[in-house]
């Protein structure tokens, strides 16, 4: 079960919203699918991003994947601790494994994202179909 207090994208990012600030990471499902994370490309602070636009990338021992923006905004902070220990994304994807924080242009854009229940159903459907 995915944490109830977060919102989710179809690209398997999670978002924690606090007012105008959004913290973004990848879901437990995503970290499991990628396997051992070996590198996280962090975005530059101040970088402007579009909703659905690519923000940064993540690499594992077996694959590479992009991380997208759940909504438009400006990158407020990147989790620099991941530079030295990217495996935190594997061990604590919803906590210390967060990737970046976004200052949202329009928090209402997040209303289209899935809640935990919808994301879990999405995963089930996704896995059933593959």
């Amino acid at each position: 079960m995915s944490p109830k207090d977060l919102r989710y994208t179809e690209q398997h990012e999670w978002v924690r919203v606090e007012g105008n600030a959004a913290t973004v990471g990848i879901t437990d499902h995503a970290q499991q699918a990628l396997g051992d994370i070996t590198f996280v490309e962090l975005p530059d602070t101040g970088q402007q991003v579009e909703a659905g636009g690519e923000v940064c990338a993540i690499e594992s021992a077996k694959a590479a994947s992009s991380i997208y923006a759940p909504a438009a905004g400006k990158v407020a902070e990147a989790n620099s601790a991941l530079e030295d220990d990217p495996s935190t994304v594997n061990t604590d994807p919803y906590g210390d494994g967060w990737v970046y924080k976004l200052e949202l242009s329009d928090p209402s854009q997040l209303e289209t994202l899935m809640d935990a229940e919808a994301y879990d159903a999405f995963l089930e459907k996704d896995q059933g179909g593959s």
Binding site: G35, D36, T38, S60, A61, K62
Partner: peptide
């Protein structure tokens, strides 16, 4: 199989 427990641990 690409991996069992995980590439790094297996390595």
């Amino acid at each position: 199989p690409v991996q069992y427990a995980g590439v790094l641990a297996e390595h």
